[in-house]
Structures are given as C-alpha cells and as structure tokens.
Amino acid sequence: MSETSAPEVQSSDLKVIKNVTFEILRYSPEKDEAPRAQKFQVPVIKGMTVLDGLLWIKENLDASLAYRSSCRMGVCGSCGMFINGLPRLACNNQIVHLNADTITIKPLPNYNIIRDLVPDLEGFFDKHESIQPYMIREQVEELNNPTGEFFQSPDELVDYIQFAYCIKCGLCLSACPTVATDDNFIGPQALAQAYRYNVDSRDEGAKEREEELYSSHGVWRCHFAGACSDVCPKGVDPAFAIQLLKQNMFMQKLHVHKQKPATHVIPWVAEHIPNEKIPKAPERTVK
C-alpha cells in the first residue's frame, strides 16, 4: 500500500501579513431598534478568506456574532454576504485579494435580516418552488417506477448544464434592482431554474411553468441590468437564461418555436459489454 503525505506547512505561511479592520453590521432583534456597525481587528495570514476572518472573530473576540456557513469551499451557498460593496460568498474571497484595510460586511440586501449577517431566505425558496424546479413528464408512471433511462445526448446536456450549477446562495436577488422595488418579481434565480428545466430534453413541463413565467411579475420585469450574472459565484448567468426565456416566448407567439418532443426511454443495459477498442483501466494503486 502506498502512502501519500500531506504537503508540509511552511512557517512563513502562518505569518501574520497585516491587520485588517472588519466593520460588521450587527442586528439583534431582542436588543436593537436598528442595525449598528461594530469594528474588529483581525490578523490576516496568507490564504485567509473573509469567512476565516469571521470564524476568528467568533472564536476570539465575540461569540455572539451570527452568520451562516457550512462547506467553506463555495459549494453550499450559505455564506452569502454584502462584502465591500458587492454581494459575495465569504468563503470564496480571500481578504488579501480585496486589497483593503477595512472590510465592510453587511447582510445581503433585499432580504429581511434575522440576526447580524443572517438573511431570511424563505421568500427566495418560495419563489424557487413556484416555478416547479423538477422534471415533469407526461409518463408519470415511468417517473415513479422507471424501466430505463431518459436518453440525453452530450449536446443536449450543454444546453442547460450551465444553469444547473446554481447553489441557491441568493446573491443574484440581492444584486437585482428590480427585486429592490418589486416584492413579487420571481427573480433571477428562479427564472434561470425555470429555463434550466424547460430546455432540458427530458422535461415536458414548459407549459405548466408558462403561467408563472409570463405573468406581470415574470420575465418581462427584467430589463437586463446584468448584476445577477456579475455576482454569481458559479457562472450560472441568470440574466442570459431570462433573455432566452423571453426569446422562446417571442418565438412561440410567432409560431416559429419548435418544441422538441421529450426524449424517449432507453431500457437498462442488462449486461455490461466492454468495448474492445477502449484499453482496460490500470490496476488500483490504493486498495
């Protein structure tokens, strides 16, 4: 059995590079009438993210500081905050890269504040749910008791894979100027997910989503400010999905949009027959 050793941590990596002021907007519903700013001095080491800074404050200076976080690697979408003038993930931004001596952190705008940096995302998830973000098929029986797989080509996958990367962090809604004034606007996240399912070759739910998408608070409320796409940490580009939904609707009205029939079911492969042209995988090195 071979062993792999972890890379050695150099002592220079743990050296404090500089001290940075974290100016955090605090709000406690029991004590505060309005949010108030509080400053903390944080020693910064190489590679330290804004989230690391918040964890350091919580461990060393003020245990009452509230924020959401989980994966620390830009995957779970929990640590969305308004950092130095932009909605960002705290775990995805290194303090040194922000190039500032003071880091201002506020809760995401356009969401109610529960406490400190914790936004209320309930309405956000309600909007996501409203566009039916799941596979809809006429063959309900096949969905419940599958006899095979829905066929999909690699090209068909590329049509929607970009939009399937959404981690539901909510940054796009906090950047959107339409959401700032229209509570009922479905918002870039949910609209992008509607497009993601509509364009999926295995889905047949476009008609069912139509009413919600093309309502007075649907796609036509977007005027392509593009801020949602600018702040998306996963490159989902919700503004693009919304323009494509508008294009589809326009083409439908002109009767030139051809809805492709949903892909067929291909039965399970009963027995795996290896392709002789593909060389065998090497023996596993770790057992």
Binding site: G85, P87, A175, P177, A180, T181
Partner: peptide, 16 residues
Amino acid sequence: RKNKLGIVGWIGGGRF
C-alpha cells in the same frame, strides 16, 4: 428587520 433597498437600489446598492 426589513432590508429592501427600494428605489435607492436602482442607482446605489453596490459596485456593479
């Protein structure tokens, strides 16, 4: 606590 930007959010609200 309400935190909607309102009309201010059209112009301000961040470095976009």
